[in-house]
Amino acid sequence: MEPELCRTMKEVRLGVDAADAALIALLARRFGYMRAAARIKQDRDAVRDEDRKQAVTDAAVEAARVQGVPADLVARLWEDLVETSIAYEDREWARIRG
């Protein structure tokens, strides 16, 4: 159900739960790409790429603006998402290379 059609909190909560499940599935895919990056990158220093981090965040903020989502909140969320992804990739890099 689209948010605009919700008439009860039960409907809202069902929608939020469905959106959360979809987000987790997307995060699993994103983390899969982080595992791939850890496998491909030969140098641990390549795990952190500040230029790429900024480009990813800028793209998310612009997409948020287009969708009418508060860009400042998306910027905060993406900062956490990208930093968490970097930490995961670093952990995977170390695991792969022992």
Rank of each mutant, 00 (worst) to 15 (best):
E83R: 07
R29N: 11
A25L: 03
Q42M: 05
I86K: 00
V82S: 05
W78Y: 15
A19R: 09
T8A: 08
D49R: 00
A87H: 06
C6H: 13
Y88I: 06
W93S: 10
V16G: 08
V16T: 15
V56G: 02
G32P: 02
A64H: 01
I40G: 12
G15K: 07
V56E: 05
Q54G: 12
A37Y: 06
Q54R: 07
E4M: 13
R7C: 11
L27N: 08
T57H: 06
L26I: 03
A19E: 12
R13F: 14
I24V: 08
D80K: 14
D51T: 03
D58Q: 02
D17G: 03
I24M: 03
R13D: 10
E89A: 14
V74R: 00
E50M: 01
L26M: 15
R76N: 07
L77E: 11
R76D: 14
A25Y: 02
A63E: 04
A25C: 01
D80G: 15
R44A: 09
L23E: 14
A36T: 15
R76V: 07
I24F: 02
R95L: 12
A38G: 09
L14Q: 15
R7V: 14
R7G: 13
V69G: 03
W93M: 09
M9K: 11
L14C: 13
A28R: 11
A38M: 00
D45L: 05
L5C: 08
A64S: 05
E79G: 09
R97T: 06
A71C: 04
A60M: 03
A94E: 15
V69M: 05
A28M: 10
R7I: 11
D90I: 03
E50L: 05
Q67S: 10
P70F: 03
V74A: 04
A28I: 12
D20V: 10
G15S: 11
M1Y: 08
E79M: 10
M34G: 00
D20K: 06
A64D: 02
A60L: 02
E92I: 15
P3E: 11
E92T: 14
R91H: 13
Q54W: 06
R97H: 12
W78D: 05
M34S: 11
E2I: 05
A87R: 11
E92G: 07
V56W: 01
A64G: 04
R95Q: 12
V12Y: 10
I40F: 06
R39Y: 10
R39A: 15
R13G: 00
K53C: 06
V74S: 05
I96M: 13
G68Q: 03
Q42V: 09
D51W: 03
I96C: 08
R52G: 05
D20M: 12
F31I: 09
A71H: 04
D17K: 10
C6N: 12
A21S: 01
A28D: 15
E50A: 02
A60N: 06
G98T: 07
R35N: 09
A37E: 04
G32A: 03
Q67L: 14
W93C: 08
A25R: 08
C6G: 07
D17T: 09
L81W: 05
